[in-house]
Amino acid sequence: MSKFTRFINFFRTKKNIAIDLGTSNILIYDKQKKKIVLNEPSVLVKDKKTGEIVAIGHKAKEMLGKTSDNLAVIRPLSEGVISDIDATREMLNIFVKQIYGGSPFRPEIMICVPAEVTSIERRAIFDAAIGAKKIYLIEEGRAAVLGSGINISLPEGNTVIDIGGGSTDIAILSLDEIIASKSVRIASNNFDDDIVKYVKKKFNLLIGDKTAENLKKEIGTAMPVSGEENLTVAIKGRDLSTGIPKTVEINSNQVREAIEDSINEIIIALKEVLEKCPPELSADILNNGIVLTGGGSLLRNFDKLIEERVQITINRATNSLESVVVGGGLAFDNKKLLRTLEMREI
């Protein structure tokens, strides 16, 4: 096969990609390759004078809290939606070029969004997807269930809790439709903020978001723990009394205390959705359990706490960090589902 023929065949190939525009990370799934082709932090660093992008993704995240006044750290997504449309466009454009270079194809794009985005937020998402042939929007809860390997086309109820970086989506689905749902702007990033505030109040110590995130991942827990499970680590920050760097120790139960209110709000939202469930589907949910997914769901003992509060089996997704974007890619194969999604053709 000649190079020219290969080029023509590539040009004719229908490209379908799914994008999870997360507050913490952007993931891109290529349906034809059947794999995630990009997973990068959704952050970029710009030179304030020139407007030039200095770093993006992992390199930009490493610079958090360490930049000079000449550089601006930008997180273009907040609480699961676009807060800076221009920066989002730039970021998507760079990431897509990293993967596909200057290829001439115009893909069909499936963008995963929180269930309760406003019309203005939806418009911003459509506008950010430059160069696409068609743009679909799919609710993160619906995508997460698909990506977890559950057939939502069957006449039975399935429930999902997707805890991302900026928002938590809770949905009950049956026959490809969302029966009841709720999206709350409380998720994993809120846990980090809670930890920063707690450490400031309890220890009079100022720590950064990265330190808080590491605390959450390394020793965090959703339930009280004892003995060897109550882990302790030393953290470093700036003493607010003296202005001098200081080290203090913090344990798992203290981290749990810091994030308790945010966790309770997520559980309250889950109960509100379950209360809207029709009786026949309630029986299905008791049988099938609830799927727990998203990066925030990886918090230690979170599944046990939810199970204790609602008395329903919690099933952790095996691919918690990727289920939403994988489900977005799988949605292209469900023609009935595609007809129910909001779409813009360019």
Rank of each mutant, 00 (worst) to 15 (best):
S68K: 02
A171P: 05
E121G: 04
V325S: 02
I266C: 11
C112S: 08
K182F: 07
I186G: 08
E272H: 10
I82F: 02
I36M: 03
I290F: 03
A187W: 05
S148I: 03
A60P: 09
I56V: 06
A180F: 04
Q311H: 14
N264P: 01
R185E: 14
M91T: 07
L205T: 11
Q98A: 03
G227K: 04
V248P: 14
R339T: 14
M63Y: 03
L305Y: 05
E308R: 14
S2C: 14
V81E: 00
N251G: 08
A124P: 01
R12N: 15
K200V: 13
I36C: 05
N9L: 12
D84R: 00
K216W: 06
A171Q: 07
I74Y: 01
L27K: 10
P76K: 06
E177W: 01
N204P: 04
K304H: 09
V54F: 09
P114D: 02
K336D: 14
L44S: 03
I19R: 04
E116W: 00
R339I: 06
E139R: 01
C277W: 08
A87W: 09
S262R: 10
G237S: 11
K271N: 13
N287Y: 14
G57T: 08
N230M: 05
F11M: 15
D176A: 03
F302H: 00
I17M: 07
I74F: 01
N9Q: 13
L175R: 12
R123E: 14
V273C: 06
P278V: 08
R106E: 15
G22F: 04
